[in-house]
């Protein structure tokens, strides 16, 4: 009777491992194809300095906007899901859903029209794009916690804060982190566009390469960008694996 869930978990683990290897295989195959098509040493010689400089800028944009979005998004999600905010949490969630259908490019444009050109509007736009899914998933995760768990916790004499930290957040963690993962994927995918409003980053190589019809230049921006996206997603998967308590973690 107790063996079934355990073996089920092991199966899930094997399944996700296979999926992961397939994914990596595909990435490597694509990378090899690309490498045969371009002259890698030549590319590095011509754009190496730019790549490093712009990648640092790129990472800075992503880290700053993403970090701020997490710092603001999770608390806002928590506050909106408190019973005292029940009145505004429903319409709030609807606004957020509509908000996340606005294309990133439009948000960049809006941000530029308001804050002008440069790094601040770029960071602000990226922050806004990243914020919405985080708030939404934090709310969804907390709202998805079984009400009987809350009653049990309250009935045992937990204060609202103890209930949040010991029961609500751990049980919402899986959904919450899935939101962070999606949000950062969107963020990293949008960072190249920040160049369009003067934010810098690897987008500079990509868009200039397109404009000048220079594939090597474009790829010098695109390959690190793609690598970065994969890296961010991978590390977040790893973090989620260890941060979500074992009892509520479908992966372990």
């Amino acid at each position: 009777m107790n063996d079934r869930p355990v073996s089920g978990r092991a199966m899930g683990c094997v399944g996700s491992k296979v999926g992961e290897w397939l994914l990596w295989g595909a990435i490597i195959a694509v990378a090899l194809g690309v490498l045969r098509w371009i002259d890698l040493p030549e590319m590095l010689r011509r754009y190496g300095g730019d790549i490093v400089h712009l990648a640092v800028q790129h990472l800075g944009l992503a880290a700053l906007s993403g970090g701020l979005a997490i710092l603001v998004g999770i608390p806002v999600g928590i506050i909106l899901s408190r019973p005292s905010f029940a009145k505004i949490s429903e319409p709030g969630a609807r606004v957020l859903t509509i908000g996340s259908t606005i294309p990133s490019l439009a948000i960049l444009a809006l941000s530029m029209s308001w804050l002008g050109i440069g790094t601040p509007p770029a960071v602000f736009a990226l922050w806004a794009v990243t914020l919405l899914p985080i708030v939404r998933n934090t709310m969804a995760g907390l709202r998805g916690v079984d009400p009987y768990l809350l009653e049990a916790g309250r009935g045992m004499g937990m204060t609202p804060m103890q209930l949040l930290v010991r029961v609500e957040l751990p049980n919402a963690m899986y959904v919450l982190l899935a939101g962070v993962r999606t949000a950062l994927a969107i963020n990293v995918g949008t960072v190249p566009m920040a160049f369009l409003i003067g934010g810098g980053g690897l987008g500079e190589l990509i868009f200039t390469g397109i404009d000048l019809n220079e594939p090597a230049m474009m790829l010098a921006g695109a390959i690190p960008t793609a690598g970065l996206a994969v890296l961010v997603d991978f590390s977040l998967g790893l973090i989620a694996y260890y941060l979500v308590p074992r009892g509520v973690n479908p992966l372990r």
Partner: peptide
């Protein structure tokens, strides 16, 4: 409680 309500995140 009627629904048992053990916390799934805890041993």
């Amino acid at each position: 409680i009627q629904q048992i309500g053990l916390f799934p995140n805890m041993t």
